[in-house]
C-alpha cells in the first residue's frame, strides 16, 4: 500500500487526468441509453438482473474512484499552508488535483443518478 501511495505520489495530475471522471460519466450516460434502447428493441423488456449494465456501471465507478483517489493523494501532498493560489509548481498541481477530486465526486454521483432510472423503471413503455 505504501509503495502504491509512493508511486501515485510520483504521478502528475494534468488536464488529461482531469477529464477522465467526466468522460467516464458521459460514456456511462451513452451506455445506459444504448443498453436500454437495445434491450427494448431486441428483447422487449429489461432483464430481471441487468448483468451487463451492472458491470458497465461498476467499471465506470471504479475508474472514477481510481482517478479521484490519485488526485486526492496529490491534493494532500505536504507543503505550505492554504490557500494554494500561488503560481508555483506545487500549487498548480494541488489546484488540478483538487479540481479532479471534485469532478470525480460529481461524476460518481452523476453515474449513480443515471443508473437509478434504468434499475427502477424496468419498463419499455
Amino acid at each position: 500500500m505504501k509503495r502504491l501511495r509512493d508511486r501515485i505520489a510520483g504521478l502528475r495530475v494534468t488536464l488529461w487526468t482531469l477529464i477522465v471522471p467526466p468522460s467516464m460519466w458521459a460514456a456511462h450516460f451513452l451506455f445506459s441509453y444504448l443498453w436500454a434502447a437495445l434491450n427494448c428493441a431486441k428483447v422487449g423488456e429489461f432483464a430481471t438482473f441487468p448483468t451487463l449494465f451492472a458491470i458497465g456501471t461498476a467499471v465506470a465507478l471504479v475508474v472514477i474512484v481510481a482517478a479521484g483517489w490519485v488526485a486526492h493523494v496529490q491534493a494532500n501532498r505536504k507543503g505550505d499552508t492554504p490557500p494554494h493560489d500561488s503560481g508555483t509548481e506545487i500549487d498548480r498541481l494541488r489546484f488540478l488535483a483538487t479540481a479532479t477530486v471534485l469532478l470525480a465526486a460529481l461524476s460518481f454521483i452523476g453515474v449513480v443518478f443515471t443508473a437509478m432510472p434504468v434499475i427502477f423503471l424496468t419498463d419499455c413503455r
Binding site: 465526486a105 454521483i109 443518478f113 437509478m116 432510472p117 427502477f120 424496468t122 413503455r125
Partner: peptide
C-alpha cells in the same frame, strides 16, 4: 455537497417508482 446529494438521491429513489407505468 453531502446533504444535497443525500436529499436528491432520496427524492430520486422515492419518485422513480411513481414513473413506472
Amino acid at each position: 455537497g453531502v446533504v444535497p446529494t443525500i436529499l436528491l438521491f432520496t427524492l430520486l429513489v422515492t419518485s422513480l417508482p411513481a414513473m413506472r407505468p
